[in-house]
Structure formats: C-alpha cells, structure tokens
C-alpha cells in the first residue's frame, strides 16, 4: 500500500518545501523539496536522524518558520500567505507538544492546562475547572492538578503538556520528539495516549521522532527524512520489511551504513601525521 491508497482527504499537504538557515558563512540547507501529506484521522510519523530537519518541518506547519520555496496547506489555507490574525486563528486548531513539555513554570499544572482555554474563550471559571479536570483525567493526571511543573517527572510533564495541547480540541496535534528521555513505562503510556487521544478527538497527528520501536506500533504511516529529503515512506509493515539501505540501518539501529559513523573529516593518517 502506498500513500495514494489511503483516503485522499488530507488535513495538511506539503508541496516541494525547501528551507535553509542563512548564516554568515553561507546557507545550510535543512529541507530540500519535501512532499508530504497528513490525512485526516491518521497518525503520521516523521523519522530521521538527529538534526535532519524534522523539527523544522513541524515549525513550518505551525507557521513559525517561513520556507524559501514550496507550500504548506492546512484545511484549504496556505499557512505562509496568511495574515498574522488568520495565522493565529489557524493555530487555535492546532496543538503542539514540545520536546520537553515547555510548561509554564510559574503556574500550576491546572493553570497550565487552563491557559489556552482562558486566553481564547470567555467560559465561566466553573466550566473551565471541569474542562481542565477532564483533560487531565484523559492523561491520567487529575490528581496532579495542584502540583507545580518543577514537582513533575519528565513523563508527567510530557503528559501535562499533552493535556494542555489538546485543551481546545485541536484538529491537528503535532508532537516534537515526544519519547525523548522517558523510562519504558512512561514511553508506552505516552505512545498509547497519542493514539487514543487522536482517535477520541477525531484529530490528525504528526509525530516527529527517532524512536522506531514505539512509534511503528502506533502510527498509520511513516516518512523517513534524510539530508532534507524524503528518503522513504510507507506503512509500518512496509517500513519494517523495507530493503532501502538507509531505512534498514535506521530500523535495525546499525551504527554504520549509508549514514556514516564518522563525521566528514580529512584522511585519518594524514591528519595524525600532520601531512598536507
């Protein structure tokens, strides 16, 4: 099965997306002609090694970065041509979970989850109270509502941040490395939550990750990014049995392969002997 066999109702479609960070020493290309689609109701994983442009891709979908070429269309709206007001309106329909949660450290767990609701709605405080507890209950942390973020473990912060990102029932939920630094139990809890919340909310999800084992269990479709391009794509089964060298190296965690163990350098012998 290829992506074309999935139902063609895409919430987000990305066409020919290119992005480079410009630096004084010349520009470094991060993304180069990426095409991608996130179908409604599905969970899509974007995988690739560290620093291959996965997070940049998420920021591009959220309109926080502007591509040099190409477009991101969410629900019929081209993200980068929108005015600030419209972009903010569009973002109300997105939720994003940051790598380390990015909870506001000066307010309690309860207030963190209540934050987007209070900012965007005029609901009475009793209703906000109930909504927040429902969201926290969904991630299993209703009992932690009164704690401060610095009293939470890594896994708990991640779950609170997840509750916060679904506070306004978004259509699209984005996860930036949701599995980094979690113990095995928290890891599978977060993994299960991502799937369950996606299905319960009828949302679509994008997970940027390099954790193969957990994500292949919960996602519907996988994109592999390497050197700014889509190196491979397919359903989890296709990825597992793929014979593309890069994918094989990644899925089976081999230290050397198309992604070299050594960072590009001068010839070893010449460098040690100080030869030109």
């Amino acid at each position: 099965m290829t992506r074309n066999d999935l139902p063609q109702d895409d919430l987000v479609s990305i066409t020919d997306l290119s992005f480079a960070y410009s630096k004084e020493s010349g520009s470094r290309k991060i993304l180069d002609g990426v095409n991608m689609a996130i179908p409604r109701g599905k969970v899509v994983a974007i995988m690739g090694g560290s620093g291959c442009g996965k997070t940049t891709l998420l920021r591009m979908i959220g309109g926080q970065l502007r591509p040099q070429r190409g477009s991101v269309v969410m629900d019929g709206q081209e993200v980068h041509t929108l005015s600030d007001r419209k972009l903010y309106a569009l973002r109300r329909r997105m939720g994003m979970l940051f790598q380390f949660g990015a909870l506001f450290t000066d307010i309690s767990v309860f207030d963190n989850v209540a934050f987007p609701i209070r900012e965007h709605t005029q609901l009475p405080e009793e209703l906000i109270h109930d909504l927040v507890l429902m969201k926290l209950h969904a991630v299993g942390l209703r009992g932690a509502a009164h704690l401060m973020p610095n009293q939470l473990s890594g896994g708990m912060s991640r779950r609170v941040a997840l509750a916060r990102s679904i506070a306004l029932d978004p259509q699209l939920i984005m996860y930036d490395e949701p599995f980094t630094g979690l113990d095995p139990i928290s890891l599978s809890i977060v993994g299960q939550l991502i799937r369950r919340l996606n299905d319960a909310l009828g949302a679509s999800s994008v997970i940027v990750t390099h954790d193969v084992a957990v994500s292949l269990k919960i996602v519907d479709y996988v994109y592999f990014v390497s050197e700014g391009k889509i190196a491979a794509e397919g359903t989890p089964d296709e990825i597992m049995s793929s014979d593309i060298a890069f994918v094989k190296q990644f899925v089976h965690a081999e230290p050397d392969g198309p992604v070299p163990f050594h960072y590009p350098a001068k010839d070893y012998r010449k460098e040690l002997l100080n030869l030109p």
Partner: peptide
C-alpha cells in the same frame, strides 16, 4: 525552554 514558542503555537 520553548515556553514562548509554545505560547505562539497556542495562538497567544
């Protein structure tokens, strides 16, 4: 700690 980014993504 990405709190400002998070806020931006919450449309604030």
């Amino acid at each position: 700690t990405e709190q400002l980014s998070a806020m931006e993504m919450m449309a604030v």
